[in-house]
Computed example of a mutant assay.
Amino acid sequence: MTGGALRAHVVAPRKGGFRLDAEVSAAPGEIVGVMGPSGAGKSTLLAVIAGLLRPESGTVQLDGVDLQRRRVPASRRGIVLLGQEPHLFPHMTARQNVGFGLRARGVEREQAARSADEWLWNVGLDGFGDHAPRELSGGQQQRVALARALATEPRLLLLDEPLTALDAETAGDIRALLHHQLVSTRTTALVVTHDTVDAVALAQRLVVIEAGAVTQQGPVREVLAAPATRFVAVAAGVNRVQGTARAGAWHSGGEPAVVLTARAHTKVADGAALAALVRPGSVVLERPADLSWTGALRLARVEEVTPNTWLARIVRLEQTPAGVRVHTAEPRFAVDLPVDRVAELQLTPGDPVRLSVKPSDVRLLPV
């Protein structure tokens, strides 16, 4: 099967005091990732496209047919929405759950059962057809839900963070299964996720929605390589700080002044907005001569500004799988350190620290 072509422009009110006004498209068989902070409007976008929520205005076109204008109900759109919970029918077996959509379309019982068993085999649950949902693990239930979604050959599959409720190992297995099934069936899909791994592993293109508007979109690799907002930078695992250009360098404009230079020359007019990208693991953190913020700041004010070296203040410490991430302010930077290094320096929130980075580890991008 091959999915449909989607073009949607959704305008809908949101509880957060803003309106969702976003456009999204997908070519037949294309998998598009949708990322954004909580409350940005991602789930609202999917609900409108699925026909579960009436928008304020806009269009939802599938293969050129405006489903919104024609008021096509959700049950007749050929669109399936799969969320965090599998929502299996508890009184049905796995086979009956998978075959439910086929039966609703008029497929004979025996044919629906054969198709359901084939799909259960496709998702790695061969022999589980007679099991009730309560007899299955969370990951197995999500596999059944995926099989049920794909069995009806949807023109568009909407996935709303389907891996969030799963443990890391199970999520990895389902992610690999999802990618294989979506590609092999050429299903058009929108995948809403908070996980960058999902976007990289599943999607060909990425759309970022913040505060109800699309702030960046393009091929996944290009978006993550050149994040246009702080949210995308965090998702990509890099620091993104905005300043102004002066003599080809990045200037913070704050006090004490911070100047960042990069090995690659950036042609930007003086005074233009400029973003600096630095990976947290590339930043070197040391203690200043004076361990009090007031004393360290006083010394910084009389010292000559040294490019790529600056005084900062610790805001918080955050544990990571590889150690500790130290968050600093003035400007906002994250620094990754081993646990023993944090213990050695006796770092606590409020402490002053001196940060430095090599020009080769700095990328400057025009805003």
Rank of each mutant, 00 (worst) to 15 (best):
G3C: 01
H9A: 07
P13K: 06
E23K: 14
V24A: 07
V24I: 15
I31E: 12
I31T: 15
V32S: 08
M35Y: 03
S38W: 04
G41I: 09
T44S: 12
L53K: 11
T59W: 00
L62I: 08
D63I: 06
D66K: 02
Q68N: 10
R70S: 14
P73I: 07
R76C: 10
E85I: 04
H87L: 15
F89L: 12
R95S: 11
R105I: 14
G106L: 13
R109T: 09
A112Y: 06
S115N: 07
S115Y: 00
D117C: 12
D117A: 12
E118Q: 10
W121S: 15
D126G: 13
D126H: 09
A132R: 15
P133I: 03
R143E: 04
V144K: 08
A145F: 09
L146V: 00
R148I: 13
E153H: 12
L156P: 01
L157G: 04
L157Q: 03
L157K: 05
L159P: 01
E161R: 09
A168E: 15
A171D: 15
A171P: 07
D173F: 03
D173R: 14
I174A: 04
I174H: 00
R175D: 02
H179F: 07
S184W: 07
V192T: 08
H194F: 02
V197F: 10
A199K: 02
A203T: 06
R205F: 09
L206I: 01
E210R: 04
E210D: 11
G218M: 09
V220K: 01
V223H: 01
V223C: 04
V234R: 15
V238M: 12
A247K: 13
A247M: 11
H251Q: 13
V258L: 11
V258P: 05
T266I: 12
V268G: 04
A275M: 03
A276K: 04
L277A: 08
R279I: 00
G281N: 06
G281E: 15
V284K: 09
A296Y: 00
L297D: 12
L297V: 12
L299Q: 14
L299S: 09
E304C: 07
P307G: 08
L311I: 01
L311K: 05
R313E: 09
V324M: 11
R325P: 01
T328L: 02
E330R: 12
D340S: 14
L345K: 09
G350K: 02
S356N: 08
P359R: 02
S360H: 05
V367Y: 01
